[in-house]
Structure formats: structure tokens, C-alpha cells
């Protein structure tokens, strides 16, 4: 089996795949455009109507100089709200500055949003927020990285399988899953360690007593081979779907592959219903 034989093998894929591929992509583009327009309208309705059916905090990367574009999609009663902004612009538009240690909150797209943390959070506080500072949360996700070569690691422990296994089989988590979701923060320094964890994640093996299901973020600001490391991390972009019954559904789509080579802020998110 060689690259050529695989290339040849692709010739024999199902007719349906060949026929529909172009149409699927066109529909995807159209749907995304419609969602953006519908999202703005629905957000206005929610903002003025006070129809808050749930409370959620969605994480976002931020930082004054961060070019990261968080893509945040909240889905409620069949309507989607999608925001595609630079982290810093996203916050400014909602009257927030780059987060400080002071808690900030806002209603965004019908969601009550709270931000914790601040740019370049010092040592120790990561664990504080991740492990001790936010008890009784359904989910807390933090991310950071950058100027001081820290890497934020997420270890998501779900009953019955890893994130990728769950995503592969179900495509979403049930409410029950979310309530039992535990998120660990793990801080490591330097590219070698990051690569070690990355490899463990790929192989599904444990490292330092943790089994990593997702590795989010790492910009390599002051790393010699930032592009290389960054690209590898991009592959770990995580899409998590939290499904709360038929009506309330929050989908959190989190891409790390958009580009980030400077300072990254740090935000912890909370999701409660």
C-alpha cells in the first residue's frame, strides 16, 4: 500500500460521496451565513426580551495582542448564535476590557457570561482556579500559554470513554455526562514536555498519572519552532457538544488553529443551567 495506491483507491469510493461533496460544502457555507444573521437577530430578541432560558459561560481566548479568533456558538431552542471575533475585540464589543483578576460578567447572546482570570496568570493560580477555586461547577475550562512558555493542558475525564471516543460514537454528551465531567489543569513548561504529553495523548497512554483526552492551546510565543509546535497543537482543536435535553443545547466549538503567536490571556468558564 503506497500513497499512489491510496490515491487510486479513492477513485472507487461510493458514488454518493462523489456526487454530494460539492453540494455539502456549498450548503455548509450558506448555513453558516444564515446562522450569523439569525444569531444577531436572536441575540437582540433575547437581550431585550429577557428570555434567558439558561446561564452559561463560554471560554474564549483573549489578550490585547492576541490574534486568536474564538468561535463561539450557543444553541438554544434551535436558534444559533455565533460569534467570530478576536478575543480582545469580542470583549470590547461587550463593554469589557481584557479580563483582570476581578470577576467580569456580561450577557452575551442570551448567555450570562462570567470571566475569571487575567492575562498571563502567574504560577499557582492556574491550579487554584482549576482545581479549588470553582467548586460545584459543571465545567471549568481554562487555557493559557505564551509569554512565559507555559502550556495549558486539559485532562477531561468522562465516564465510559475519552472525549474523542465519545465524540466519535455519539457526537455529544448527555446532561448526565456533563455533570460528571471533571476538568483538570496541568501546567508544564517547555516544548519537550508538551510534545511528550502530545504523544501520550495521541497514543492514549498515561503520563504523570493523567490520561489526556484533549490538549488545548499552546502558542509557543518565545519558542524557536513556534510554527511547528503550534501546528501540532492545532490538530487537537476540540469540539464539545453539551446536550441538555431536546430544547436547551449549548454547543461549544473551540478552534485553536486560527493563529496565535503572541500573548494569550486566560479565562475560566462556567456552564450552569
Amino acid at each position: 500500500m503506497t500513497a499512489e495506491s491510496i490515491f487510486e483507491g479513492v477513485s472507487y469510493i461510493d458514488d454518493a460521496l462523489i456526487e454530494r461533496s460539492g453540494g455539502v460544502l456549498k450548503r455548509r457555507r450558506f448555513a453558516a451565513a444564515v446562522r450569523t444573521v439569525a444569531g444577531v437577530a436572536a441575540a437582540l430578541v433575547l437581550a431585550f426580551g429577557g428570555l434567558l432560558a439558561y446561564r452559561a459561560v463560554i471560554l474564549s481566548k483573549t489578550g490585547t495582542d492576541s490574534p486568536v479568533s474564538p468561535i463561539i456558538t450557543a444553541q438554544l431552542d434551535g436558534a444559533d448564535y455565533e460569534f467570530v471575533k478576536k478575543g480582545s475585540e469580542f470583549l470590547k464589543e461587550h463593554g469589557l476590557s481584557v479580563p483582570t483578576e476581578e470577576l467580569k460578567s456580561a450577557y452575551i447572546g442570551g448567555c450570562y457570561v462570567e470571566f475569571y482570570g487575567y492575562h498571563d496568570m502567574p504560577d499557582g493560580e492556574f491550579e487554584f482556579y482549576e482545581l479549588n477555586g470553582c467548586p460545584n461547577r459543571d465545567i471549568i475550562i481554562g487555557d493559557r500559554g505564551g509569554r512565559r512558555s507555559y502550556w495549558a493542558m486539559m485532562c477531561i475525564d468522562l465516564p465510559g470513554g475519552t472525549v474523542s471516543e465519545r465524540l466519535a460514537h455519539k457526537g455529544y454528551y448527555s446532561a448526565e455526562d456533563v455533570h460528571s465531567l471533571r476538568v483538570y489543569g496541568k501546567k508544564v513548561r517547555g516544548r519537550e514536555k508538551t510534545n511528550e504529553i502530545w504523544n501520550a495523548l495521541q497514543n492514549g497512554t498515561e503520563i504523570d498519572g493523567n490520561r489526556y483526552d484533549a490538549l488545548i492551546k499552546g502558542d509557543g510565543y518565545d519558542e524557536a519552532n513556534a510554527q511547528e509546535v503550534y501546528t501540532r497543537h492545532a490538530d487537537s482543536a476540540v469540539e464539545i457538544v453539551f446536550n441538555y435535553g431536546e430544547l436547551n443545547c449549548l454547543r461549544l466549538t473551540y478552534y485553536t488553529d486560527i493563529g496565535c503567536f503572541s500573548g494569550i490571556g486566560y479565562i475560566l468558564g462556567e456552564v450552569t443551567f
Partner: peptide, 11 residues
């Protein structure tokens, strides 16, 4: 591997 068989796997 026969191209057709590989095609089935890829499909």
C-alpha cells in the same frame, strides 16, 4: 491491495 477494495475501505 486492490484499488476497488481499498475504495471500499475508504468509503
Amino acid at each position: 491491495i486492490d484499488g476497488q477494495h481499498l475504495g471500499e475501505l475508504i468509503s
